[in-house]
Amino acid sequence: MTLNAERVSRAAGGRLILDGVDLSPGPGATTGLLGPNGSGKSTLLRLLAGVLAPASGVVTLDGRPLDRVGRRDVARRVAVVEQQADTQVELTVRDVVRLGRIPHRRPWTPASAADEEAVTDALGRTRLTAQADRLWHTLSGGERQRVQIARALAQQPRELLLDEPTNHLDLRHQLDVLALVAALPVTSVVALHDLNLAAMYCDHLVVLSEGRVVARGEPAEVLTAGLVAEVYRVHAEVTRTGPAARPHVRFLGTLPD
């Protein structure tokens, strides 16, 4: 059992952002959320995180509606990595990762050995141990994203939600971040713009367009020239020569609207 969205809808400013979307990410798998700007990816992630409430439909965690599970209990299970987190506060890498222990700690009590162990472990898994004492504002974009993932891991989640974690990263850091996420033994849902990265690292893809699911399945089934034309209005050619016969999309130009 894990996170589940059942026929969730959400409107903003009189416009439907999400229109009856179902999502049941496979436990332990990496699910890619695709779709053009404004298709509802971020909103769906915010509903799954419990930051927003659906106007209709329900998000459940282990079968219980999310709003009946306490905020702290949700935060111990579900961790979120935002698109571009930033702060004015002078925090070190370790300080930021320690934020992930907040849902596990009670007020007035100092950090336990388990807290420190989770922080050390998260730093190790994201290869940030040597950088632990650096200040947040001296980090590059790729490093910041890794630190946020380390913070999420320190929450010891079973579900991990990432909103376009590769935005503004150079090629190497994009691959680096997604390889890290795909290798984690947690259920992850990743909103992505890059179809080829999605094909390489996701076990399962869900494509949104104007608030509805238009395709879902394994990358090889979902990523077709027809779908790219329909959803993105882009003329593309899809080949299956990549590793493990994963599809590769080559863009040839835009199509008339």
């Binding site: 419990g50 930051v51 702290r72 935060a75 987190a85 702060t87 925090l91």
Partner: peptide
């Protein structure tokens, strides 16, 4: 530190 939404996702 990282804003209200981040605080909300930390419980």
């Amino acid at each position: 530190a990282f804003g209200q939404d981040a605080a909300a996702t930390l419980g």
